[in-house]
Amino acid sequence: MVFKERTFYGEPPEGTVPPDQADLETRVANCLATVDGLDASDVSVVSKGNTILLAGTVATAVEATRAEDAARSIAGVAEVVNRIAVS
């Protein structure tokens, strides 16, 4: 049996997707899930580089502010774009 090294269009597969992007989204989403006074079940988190986009709906403007503050508190987040609507 012959084993070939894995490649993706000639590049190692680990080099095709930034390793920290999914990790950053996960860390922000986990943080939002644990914030007191925030129901983030309808909030989505998307990262592009070190920028986090928050979208979805919450019940009050205070919750939207809490979500943004929580996202900013995560190491590696440079900017937060808050597009959370209040229902």
Rank of each mutant, 00 (worst) to 15 (best):
V35L: 06
V17L: 07
C31M: 11
S41I: 06
D69N: 14
G49R: 03
T60I: 07
V35W: 01
I74W: 04
V43Q: 01
T7N: 07
V2E: 10
V80S: 08
R72H: 13
D20Q: 07
M1H: 12
S87R: 13
C31F: 01
R83S: 15
T34F: 05
G15N: 11
T65V: 10
E5Q: 11
L24V: 14
P18V: 11
T7D: 10
T57C: 02
F3S: 11
F8E: 10
V28R: 00
E25W: 02
A85E: 15
D20G: 11
L24T: 14
P13A: 13
F3I: 15
A75S: 15
D36I: 05
T34Q: 10
A75P: 08
I74E: 00
E68F: 09
D20R: 03
P12H: 09
E63L: 05
C31S: 08
F3L: 12
N82E: 12
A55N: 14
E63Q: 15
T34D: 07
T34P: 00
V86N: 08
A85C: 04
T51F: 06
T51R: 09
T60W: 01
A33S: 13
T65L: 06
S73Q: 03
D23G: 12
P12L: 08
V17D: 02
L54F: 13
R6S: 12
F8Y: 14
S41A: 13
A67W: 06
L53E: 01
T51G: 06
E68I: 05
A61S: 14
S44C: 04
K48R: 13
T16W: 05
K4V: 10
V62I: 09
C31E: 13
T60M: 03
T7M: 06
Y9I: 01
V81Y: 02
R72C: 09
A70C: 14
P13H: 12
E68Y: 08
P19C: 08
E79W: 01
I52L: 09
D20F: 13
K48T: 01
V62R: 12
G15S: 09
A59G: 10
E68H: 09
R72G: 00
G10W: 04
Y9S: 13
S41P: 04
A40P: 10
A71K: 05
R72N: 13
T51L: 05
L53M: 09
D39E: 07
T57V: 11
T60K: 03
I74K: 02
L32M: 09
T34C: 04
L24K: 01
E5H: 12
L24D: 00
T7C: 04
Q21F: 00
A64Q: 04
V58T: 15
V80R: 06
L53D: 00
Q21S: 12
G76C: 07
E11N: 08
N30W: 06
D36P: 04
A40Q: 05
E68P: 07
E5T: 15
V58N: 02
S41M: 02
V46K: 11
D20I: 03
K4M: 07
G76Y: 03
R27T: 13
V46G: 02
V62A: 15
E14T: 00
V81K: 07
D36R: 09
N50C: 06
A71C: 08
P18Y: 06
L24W: 00
T16L: 10
